[in-house]
């Protein structure tokens, strides 16, 4: 079927294809690797000084309710408590007026019953008082403490401690820089082929004192065939760096909400430089 010329042609064709595919296999026409840039890229963090949300709202001072635990309408005060009748007026003012003013809108449903109760409570008192004044033997069970709480003076908030401020981007980036600065002396990136491509991400939970209470590995990126063996070491060194740097110092307590959980922190070659 095939003569000599055709056999020769087949041989040449096979050889030619083999050569072509060999050339392509060794990257003869390969596109240049885009990762090999002439200038190493530098990381730029954009921080807006005047951010949409750069300051925290003022802590809410919640006024204490002026209810005594056991109001008893039966007992009446001694004659020195005679000026009691005008008392309900300032009482109502003190209770009802400040209620809507400092309260944020979202707390309304919870607060609603209270003014009603407060308003309801003195209501029976008011009519009872003129009656009881006629009977001086009945003592008021309204304590002095309660009456003291019904003044115009600003009331004490029941919330303990100051709520943490919400940090704006400027504060956040300053905090991040501070944490990285403290991590840097303890972090040594492993060396090896393609080791600079590795980046291990950790998530830290920090207590108020700055001590790291929990370290969570979020995985390592940039793994190639040649640096696969270094991944374990990379993660171990990252965790070691955190443990050595703990506890973090100089972190402002008012921003504890911001730095109590740091996630993710990337450990790579650049951090150690």
């Amino acid at each position: 079927m095939m003569d000599r010329v055709e056999k020769a042609g087949l041989g040449i064709a096979i050889a030619g294809h083999a050569v072509l595919f060999g050339l392509l296999s060794v990257g003869f026409l390969a596109t240049p690797n885009p990762a090999n840039l002439k200038q190493k890229p530098i990381e730029v963090t954009l921080t807006d000084e005047v951010a949409l949300e750069s300051t925290a709202p003022d802590p809410i001072s919640e006024p204490a309710t002026a209810l005594s635990p056991e109001p008893a309408p039966l007992d009446m005060p001694e004659p020195e408590v005679q000026p009691a009748p005008p008392q309900p007026e300032p009482l109502k003012r003190a209770e009802v007026k400040p209620a809507p003013a400092p309260r944020p809108a979202e707390k309304k449903p919870a607060e609603k019953p209270r003014p009603e109760k407060a308003a309801a409570k003195p209501a029976p008192k008011a009519p009872s008082k003129p009656q009881t004044t006629a009977e001086p033997q009945r003592k008021s069970r309204l304590s002095r403490d309660m009456l003291a709480g019904l003044t115009d003076a600003p009331t004490q908030s029941r919330a303990t401690g100051t709520p943490a401020q919400k940090a704006g981007p400027a504060v956040q980036s300053a905090l991040a820089a501070e944490v990285l600065r403290q991590l840097k002396p303890h972090w040594t990136a492993p060396t090896g082929a393609d080791a600079e491509k590795l980046q291990t991400k950790l998530c830290l939970t920090v207590s108020r004192s700055g001590a790291v209470t929990n370290i969570e590995t979020q995985g390592t990126t940039g793994i190639t065939a040649s640096n696969r063996g270094l991944v374990q070491l990379h993660q171990e060194r990252a965790i070691k760096a955190v443990k050595l740097a703990s506890p973090f110092k100089n972190l402002p307590p008012q921003f504890y909400d911001t730095w109590k959980s740091m996630c993710p922190i990337g450990f790579d070659k650049r951090l150690s430089q």
Binding site: A8, G9, A13, I14, H17
Partner: peptide, 9 residues
């Protein structure tokens, strides 16, 4: 391959 074999031959 077959095409090129034919072409050359």
């Amino acid at each position: 391959i077959w095409t090129w074999a034919i072409i050359i031959g």
